[in-house]
Design a binder for these strands. Structure first.
Length: 506
RNA sequence: CGGGGCGUGGCGCAGCCUGGUAGCGCACCUGCUUUGGGAGCAGGGGGCCGUCAGUUCAAAUCUGACCGCCCCGACCA
């Protein structure tokens, strides 16, 4: 009593945001660090969230005609070398398998024996191996388009890792399509970006900006990279999904040719698009508060937890019966496109139980004791409201309204995130203001500062690079819906070509 | 790879300066009492103190090397 801190997570977001991120994940039971460098173990609570995200995305992909397939984890080194920019971009972060057998040495230690004839790269992405397959599958314009998606894991040996945001291995989906025309491929690139934006906004309650990457930020081997960018609560940007227009680059590299209706031999036009478990990091940093994470109802690992309370053994049976029947009743209700998921937690561990679920971010907590039985009611706590703000509802009313309550939370989370982004997005025309905006007052231990700056850019890569070097600020995207005219370049003062979103990024 | 911090039971830490073989809080287990809320009392289990080597009668404590982790930066979903 009284010795507990005011918030469940310490430090708070304002005290130390990176440390808060570590702590809030630990408390959430989503995942933990593994003994393998840079890799994470996704625990059941985290994996259920990922499954819901996958399910939502998968359904949207399939609606557009995409079919799932699976390609090998290993890519022959020679495949990686086919597209020059692609190798260049990924070479440094490739994990490579060079041996295939372990043997005991004289000291009894296991050592790799049997070197491979050709090293295998653990896929950092699958463009090259899929391109190789497409080159065999596609002969005629009648074979097009090919619309593929793969759910899997990839490995990128990053220098610095952060759980969910940048792990050496991560789970994702990568879509790969091939088309007969530039227009159709471009249309697909935009279509998939729209799906990511819908996923982020409608399911994850994360508002995103859609736009194009600059050449410096483009996917290696792409002609054009489109992205969605979200603002985290430390006002840094998180790239939450990308869709690439690959032109004919990979088609030329892997000889993906077809005969057109006009009887000409042509290269196909390809696209690729991906979103990863990084989205979970986005959910954590968009919605989490100083009491833990907050899961958006549409993708929450579970939506309601029932917490039976009984003082005496005599009450136990009645309370559990009421709880179980309510659980059954709730599971029969649908929220959006799936049945409501219910957890029952009968552990008799006092108030700690409620806090555990708050930290895990479950949208609704229902306490059930003899009082509820007597009044045929439920005692409801919402994760988007302060933990002490709980209300009693009639049982029938709750069951009838639960879908609406979940939707209300979903909408609240989105609205809250959107207003945070709006409050921290500014149009800046003056270079000095721009540098001030992105410079923390406390250089030793930077406070949360900056945000999204809408500023003009002349289009010169040098200006972009200078800003990155001076401030670690990058152009997150050239937004599709830029309202202001371009103005003068924030770096060199020459006439601007684009209105760009500048921010510090993950 | 550069800068900073740190490696002691599951988590957070003290002990290290002034060597003598391990302690606290939380968590965990048992019992009793409590109970609309992150309980109280009593008892209990769990650590050869990152690794290796050295100094010493004796090392968590001193010396050296190495390994790992976290934060900041470069690389990046």
């Amino acid at each position: 009593m009284g010795k507990q801190p005011k918030s469940a997570i310490s430090p708070t977001r304002n005290e130390d945001y990176p440390e808060w991120y570590q702590q809030v994940i630990k408390a959430s039971d989503l995942a933990e660090r593994s003994p393998v460098r840079g890799c994470m173990v996704i625990k059941p609570w985290g994996y259920a969230l990922w499954e819901n995200i996958m399910q939502a995305m998968d359904a949207m992909f399939k609606e557009t005609g995409v079919k799932n397939a699976y390609f090998p984890l290993f890519i022959p080194l020679s495949f990686m070398q086919k597209e020059a920019d692609h190798v260049e971009g990924f070479a440094k972060e490739c994990a490579v398998v060079t041996h295939h057998r372990l043997e005991k040495n004289e000291r009894g230690e296991l050592v790799p024996a049997g070197p491979l004839a050709e090293p295998l790269v653990v896929r950092p992405t699958s463009e090259t191996i899929i391109a190789d397959a497409l080159s065999k599958w596609i002969n005629s314009y009648r074979d097009l388009p090919v619309l593929l998606n793969q759910w899997g894991n990839v490995v990128r040996w990053e220098m610095r890792t952060r759980i969910f945001l940048r792990t050496s291995e991560f789970l994702w989906q990568e879509g790969h399509t091939a088309h007969a025309s530039r227009e159709e491929a471009w249309e697909r690139t935009v279509m998939m970006l729209d799906i990511y934006a819908r996923l982020a906004e409608e399911y994850l309650a994360i508002p995103v900006l859609k736009g194009r990457k600059t050449a410096a930020e483009r996917f290696p081997g792409a002609v054009d990279t489109l992205c969605i960018e979200a603002m985290m609560q430390d006002r840094k940007a998180l790239q939450a999904g990308t869709s690439h227009f690959l032109g004919q680059n990979f088609a030329r590299a892997s000889e993906i040719k077809f005969q057109s209706a006009e009887e000409r031999e042509e290269y196909v036009w390809t696209t690729s698009w991906g979103a990863s478990t990084r989205l979970i990091g986005g959910v954590i940093m968009t919605h989490g508060d100083d009491d833990g994470i907050i899961l958006p109802p549409r993708v929450a690992s579970a939506q309601v937890v029932l917490l039976p309370i009984f003082k005496k053994e005599e009450e136990r049976q009645a309370v559990m019966a009421y709880t179980d029947s309510l659980a059954k009743e709730l599971k029969a209700v649908r929220y959006k496109d799936r049945p409501i998921t219910v957890e029952v937690d009968p552990r008799d561990i006092g108030g700690a139980r409620g806090w555990e679920w708050i930290k895990k971010g479950i949208p609704l907590r229902i306490e059930i004791g003899s009082r509820e039985i007597k009044e045929n009611a439920v005692f409801l706590g919402r994760r988007d409201k302060p933990h002490h703000e709980r209300v009693s509802l009639k049982r029938e009313a709750f069951v009838a309204e639960i879908s609406g309550i979940l939707d209300d939370i979903q909408n609240n989370l989105f609205a809250r995130a959107l207003s945070y982004r709006t409050e921290n997005t500014v149009t800046i025309e003056d270079k000095g203001d721009f540098y001030d905006y992105f410079t923390p007052r406390n250089l030793e231990k930077p406070e949360i500062h900056g945000g999204f700056a809408l500023s003009a850019w002349c289009g010169d890569a040098d200006c972009e690079a200078r800003i990155k070097e001076d401030l670690t600020v990058t152009i997150r995207c050239l937004p599709f819906d830029a309202k202001e005219p371009a103005g003068r370049c924030i770096s060199c003062g020459k006439p601007g070509q684009h209105r760009a979103v500048f921010a510090k990024a993950y």
